[in-house]
Design a protein around this nucleic acid. Structure first.
Lengths: 347, 347
DNA sequence: GTGATTATTTGGAACGTTCCAAATTTTGTC
DNA sequence: GACAAAATTTGGAACGTTCCAAATAATCAC
């Protein structure tokens, strides 16, 4: 009725108290008498009051908003990561700005700036390729904590949470070697990324430990997508000395590899062993179920959010670098599928 | 330096003008002299000023924030939808709150309330199952436009954008019948949803038109996921009179059906025809490429966002119900794969 | 009942912006 | 150079909250 918006003052008026008291009630302060609290709450419900956080943020400092920007939301890995973040952020009473950069660094800059104007009190970012350490300088200078996930940025003075890519790839190779494979390919991924380098490093290391010579022909870099996987098998099968197994850059590539194998009348898990990386949700239900390095993207999202909230609350912005442990989940696609009850980790 | 935050007043001071002038510059007003504008902008850059939208919103009404809530972000369909929304929202200078409900109606209520407190000026929602028309009443009462996508809610006085489920399923059946199939199953999806009912309706209608008797055994409802697809083939293949083709509730189910077929040594597109629904991004690159009803989730997201922005800007909140046309994209999984150059629509 | 405690409540004064009406400067005309 | 018109600039007064210091009310001990 009056004007439009119902404000604390209207409530105060209707409840016969001062606006300060209403404010106290809103914040759940213990200073206020039980009877008045009840009355105020009743009036609040009655008038359909909605809290105006914008106004509140003007006085307070803590905004109950965090930002999360990912480089490719259409990739299940990042979608799950976002869901993980959402879960903890939501139950902490925060709300998240989420934006997709599509690997565009300009877009990333824009959305981060925009989020900042909107007053985020923290940022989780899976940086677009080519992001520099300086890009988050202004955030951290302003005391806004930043957590980088998935892809690390050398030299950035912010917290990071990445998975143990080296150990993961290494475990995959070790497992395949244990099954008797000698021609093990590394398929998919863009060669000029840190993640690629780390996983390839683990691959080479494990190869060496297993006494298998590294063969440059067996690493075939493609887009880290399903289509890239199809392409990768195609290229690998042109070799004179064909591989009999592959560790893939990620699960999307692995699925593509399976598709490509079948297009050649080879059955993954029978005629050729494939292991993925990430343990995306479909990995378990696919046929054959994908043997993969479990990164638990959702769990990673949750951990990232927890780390961020911790930093927001503690006020101190000291960088913390966490590398998250991974473990190989053996299912059917590697041909060792004895234990079909293997389940994904939910930490 | 001074306190912490740089404000318009600091800028005004440093530039030797009044705060009002700075404000004018910020808004790109044409009232201000070119020379002063330049000076002010220089100072802004120099002092590292960041605009405080929260404060601005206190005075203005339009908040440059929209909310989007989806029921399952881990489903590529919704992830792509969100990306589509993000694209247009971003380039309109807005920023989006995104939340995932995971089909929980309580969570949905919470996040919508929270978004509202944060001052969204519009909401796009793919409602959780069981959402009622009344749930958005308070939003619309406050003049905040709401656009419902994907799943319609009968009786809700808000705009909606859904795909033509009836026509899509119908086209799929017609196509399969045209290829000579008589035992066509309908696989996947929860039976008690509007979308299921619409698609099943299209299926039955097309069956009738093709002169094929409807067989209750051939509709096998399961979860609308990859695992559900696997389950569906399993059940269908137990029938005495087995199907030779299936139209699936969505692409996830269709992929599951392919998996299940292969687990039975049947090759999709050769021994059994499968057509999906949605045209998720992987549909094109999967092997065999999936014949599916193209819903173009990203395009739908874009359209929803455009519709919402239009309503926000025009100020009038009159509901508009759009049913988005779909078209069958014939690829390989239906066995008619002659034209391999079929491409997805990007409107 | 009195003074001291403790428990509640309460008016401003912020916070950083935008808006309005009015003031000032510049430009143009004769 | 005086006057009008146009262009530019500018002080408050909002916006809806939270804080603070201080006021008031309730309770206690004697």
């Amino acid at each position: 009725m009056n004007k439009g918006r119902v404000t604390v003052i209207d409530i105060a008026h209707a409840a016969g108290v001062s606006k300060s008291t209403v404010s106290l009630v809103l914040q759940g302060s213990s200073l206020v008498n039980e009877a008045t609290r009840a009355k105020v709450n009743a009036v609040i419900r009655e008038l359909g009051y909605v809290y105006n956080r914008g106004a509140a943020n003007l006085r307070q400092a803590k905004s109950k908003i965090v930002g999360i920007v990912v480089n490719d939301l259409t990739n299940s890995f990042f979608a799950e990561l976002a869901v993980g973040v959402d879960m903890v952020v939501q139950s902490a009473g925060y709300v998240q700005f989420l934006s997709n950069t599509g690997e565009s660094i300009d877009r990333q800059r824009e959305v981060v700036a925009s989020m900042r104007e909107h007053g985020i009190s923290g940022l989780i970012v899976s940086p677009a390729r080519g992001t520099e350490a300086a890009d988050f300088k202004s955030l951290t200078n302003a005391g806004i904590p930043v957590v980088i996930v998935v892809r690390n940025i050398p030299g950035a003075k912010v917290s990071s949470l990445v998975s143990d890519n080296f150990a993961g790839a290494s475990a995959a190779v070790e497992h395949l070697a244990g099954l008797g494979h000698r021609r093990i390919a590394f398929m998919g991924g863009f060669a000029n990324t840190a993640v690629f380098a780390e996983r390839l490093g683990g691959y080479r290391d494990a190869l060496a430990k297993a006494g298998i010579a590294f063969d440059d022909d067996l690493v075939v870099a493609t887009a880290p997508s399903r289509a890239g996987g199809v392409e990768a098998v195609g290229r690998a099968m042109l070799l004179a000395n064909k591989p009999t197994a592959a560790v893939c850059f990620n699960d999307a590539v692995a699925f593509g590899v399976c598709d490509g194998l079948r297009a050649r009348r080879l059955e993954p898990g029978v005629d050729f062993a494939v292991v993925g990386f990430d343990d995306v949700i479909e990995a378990e239900s696919a046929v054959p179920a994908l043997t993969t390095v479990s990164v638990d993207p959702q769990g990673m999202g949750r951990r990232a959010a927890q780390l961020l909230l911790k930093q927001i609350n503690s006020g101190k912005v000291e960088a913390e670098a966490i590398v998250s442990a991974v473990r190989l989940v053996v299912r059917q696609s590697c041909g060792a599928g004895l234990d079909t009850t293997a389940r994904r980790v939910v930490s």
